[in-house]
C-alpha cells in the first residue's frame, strides 16, 4: 500500500530540466549565474578602498584568495605556483557556486550533478596540466610521466602502461566522476528523503501513526541538507587541490 504510494521517479525526471528558452535550461542558468556572481563579487571587492581593513564583500573575496594561496597553492606547488592562483580561484568559485544550488530552495539542483560541467572542467584541467608539462619539460615530460625516474629497465613496459593509464586517462576520468557522482548522489539522497516525507504526509491512510512518522525522513532531510553544505565546499576544494597537484607535478616532476 505504502510501496505503491511511494514511487521513485525516473532518474531523468529529477535531473533534466525543461528549457527556459531555446537550449537554456536550469543547469545553464546556474552556470551563468555562478560566473556572474563570481564576477560581481570580485568587481565590488575590487572597487572598495584597499587601504582600510577589508570588510563585507572585499573581506569575502580576500579570504577566498588567501584560502587558495595558503591552503592550496602553497601546500601543493610552493611559491613558484602562485601564478596559478587566478585559475584555481576561478575554478574553486565556479565549482562551489555550481554545487551550492543543490541546497538552495527553488533552484534545488547542483549544476555539477550533470555530466557536462564536471567533464568540461576536468578536460580543461587535463589540457592545462599536460600543456604545463610539455612547456616546462619539453618532450621529456612524456617519458617522465610514463617512466618515473628510477624504474628498472625490466619493469619499464609494465610501469609504462600503468603510469600512462593512470596519469593520462584515469586522472581526468576520476576528476570528472568524483565531482559529478558526489553531487548526483547528494541530490538523489535529498530527493529520496523529500519524497519519503512528502508521501508520508500526503498518504491517504487510516493509520493514525503514519502521518507523524514523516518527521523521521524530514529530520534526515535536514541533516543531509547540512551535510550537502559541507560536500559542496569539500568537492570544490578537492577538485581545486587535485588540479594544483597535477599542475605542480607536471611543472616540477621531482615533487
Amino acid at each position: 500500500m505504502l510501496a505503491e504510494a511511494f514511487k521513485f521517479p525516473e532518474i531523468n525526471a529529477i535531473l533534466r530540466w525543461q528549457d527556459i528558452f531555446t537550449s537554456f535550461n536550469k543547469i545553464a542558468l546556474i552556470a551563468v549565474a555562478a560566473a556572474v556572481i563570481g564576477i560581481v563579487v570580485f568587481l565590488l571587492a575590487g572597487n572598495k578602498d584597499a587601504k582600510v581593513a577589508p570588510k563585507g564583500v572585499r573581506n569575502l573575496a580576500e579570504t577566498t584568495v588567501e584560502f587558495i594561496e595558503d591552503g592550496i597553492v602553497m601546500q601543493t606547488m610552493g611559491k613558484s605556483g602562485l601564478g596559478w592562483t587566478p585559475f584555481l580561484l576561478s575554478l574553486f568559485i565556479f565549482i562551489y557556486l555550481c554545487n551550492v544550488p543543490g541546497i538552495i530552495p527553488i533552484l534545488q539542483m547542483p549544476a555539477t550533478a550533470r555530466m557536462a560541467i564536471p567533464m568540461f572542467l576536468a578536460l580543461l584541467v587535463w589540457v592545462v596540466y599536460n600543456g604545463v608539462g610539455f612547456k616546462h619539460q619539453g618532450i621529456t615530460y612524456l617519458t617522465h610521466t610514463i617512466w618515473p625516474p628510477g624504474v628498472p629497465v625490466a619493469l619499464k613496459p609494465l610501469v609504462g602502461v600503468i603510469e600512462f593509464i593512470s596519469n593520462i586517462i584515469v586522472r581526468p576520468f576520476s576528476l570528472t566522476v568524483r565531482l559529478f557522482a558526489n553531487m548526483l548522489a547528494g541530490h538523489i539522497l535529498l530527493v529520496t528523503f523529500a519524497l519519503l516525507t512528502q508521501s508520508l504526509i500526503t498518504a491517504e491512510t487510516q493509520q493514525l501513526l503514519l502521518k507523524p512518522m514523516a518527521i523521521l525522513p524530514f529530520f534526515m532531510l535536514v541533516f543531509l541538507t547540512a551535510f550537502e553544505v559541507l560536500v559542496a565546499f569539500l568537492q570544490a576544494y578537492i577538485f581545486t587541490i587535485l588540479t594544483a597537484v597535477y599542475i605542480g607535478g607536471a611543472a616540477h616532476p621531482e615533487h
Binding site: 552556470a31 560566473a35 587566478p86 565556479f94 550533470r114
Partner: peptide, 20 residues
C-alpha cells in the same frame, strides 16, 4: 544520466571561460 548534454556543456564551458 551520465551522458553530457551539448547545451549544458556549451553554457557551462562558456560561462567558466568568461569567468576565468
Amino acid at each position: 544520466p551520465i551522458v553530457p548534454e551539448l547545451k549544458e556543456l556549451a553554457w557551462g564551458a562558456g560561462s567558466f571561460i568568461v569567468f576565468a
